[in-house]
């Protein structure tokens, strides 16, 4: 179980998760290569967020295996996965409401990959850098619960980035942003990838997914129905029917 091919950073085999009879994620296998941006799309209720939670450890799978960086991780506690280098954002955003923006991001820097930066002053410096990167620096002293929607999305991103992850799981960080802001975030995500971070991105904004993703994974009713280059995936009749077809109807 230790020697896995190094080409893929994350590999899922037969991941399955049930909720009281409902199968949210059903026998899903895929791999995410090092340095890649993998788009994860599907209609509402397709199991995208559940899949992200299985990878980050917020949920445990009923069956299947997850290999990250050559290690089996599917039973590991969330904090151990964070130490290995998996960072995520939450679709339903989870800021630390009573803390300032800077403190929020500092938590990511203090913990995060390899247990984080032990020194609080240095962690704060790293947090400031992430706030500059995400454009939140002017708000650093504000309480997180005083932020508006778009800024909360940025905060989610900054917190995950401060963990210095190898793999970043982004759950709808663009929802509710206007087109200009979407472009900004797309540019930011590309920049993050250039820094050597692999990214799994859930998004409803198809234009963004097209321009970002090296490959796309499509879930429908918890099952993988397509995987591959964006151009070919979006031509796949099953994808058109399941996802785009419904939206047009």
């Amino acid at each position: 179980m230790s020697a896995e091919p190094a080409a893929s950073l994350l590999e899922a085999r037969g991941l399955t998760r049930r909720f009281q009879g409902l199968i949210a994620v059903n026998d899903v296998s895929f791999s995410l290569r090092s340095g890649e941006i993998l788009g994860l799309i599907g209609p509402n209720g397709a199991g995208k967020t559940t899949l992200v939670s299985l990878i980050s450890g917020t949920l445990l799978p009923d069956a299947g295996a997850l290999v990250f960086d050559g290690r089996r991780i599917e039973r590991l506690a969330p904090f151990r996965r964070a130490h290995l280098g998996i960072g995520r954002t939450f679709q339903v955003m989870k800021p630390f409401p009573g803390l300032s923006v800077l403190e929020n991001v500092t938590v990511g820097a203090l913990f995060g990959k390899d247990g984080g930066e032990r020194n609080r002053a240095r962690a704060r410096e790293r947090a400031r850098a992430m706030l500059d990167l995400t454009g939140l620096a002017p708000r650093l002293a504000q309480r997180a619960d005083a932020l508006g929607g778009p800024d909360r999305k940025r905060l989610e991103l900054a917190k995950a980035l401060a963990m210095q992850p190898k793999l970043l799981l982004l759950d709808e960080v663009m929802a509710g942003l206007n087109p200009v802001e979407v472009d900004e975030v797309v540019a930011l995500i590309k920049k993050i990838r250039e820094g050597g971070v692999s990214i799994l991105v859930i998004e409803h904004v198809i234009k963004a997914i097209r321009s970002l993703s090296d490959r796309v994974l499509v879930l429908h009713h918890g099952q993988k129905i397509a995987e591959g280059e964006p151009a070919s995936v979006f031509r796949d009749p099953r994808v058109v029917e399941a996802y785009l077809g419904k939206r047009r109807a």
Partner: peptide
């Protein structure tokens, strides 16, 4: 800081690496 993160949102604290 880890304890405070738990108080503010335990699930978020866990995925950020707090044991």
């Amino acid at each position: 800081m880890g304890l405070i993160a738990i108080r503010e949102d335990e699930d978020a604290a866990a995925v950020m690496g707090v044991d």
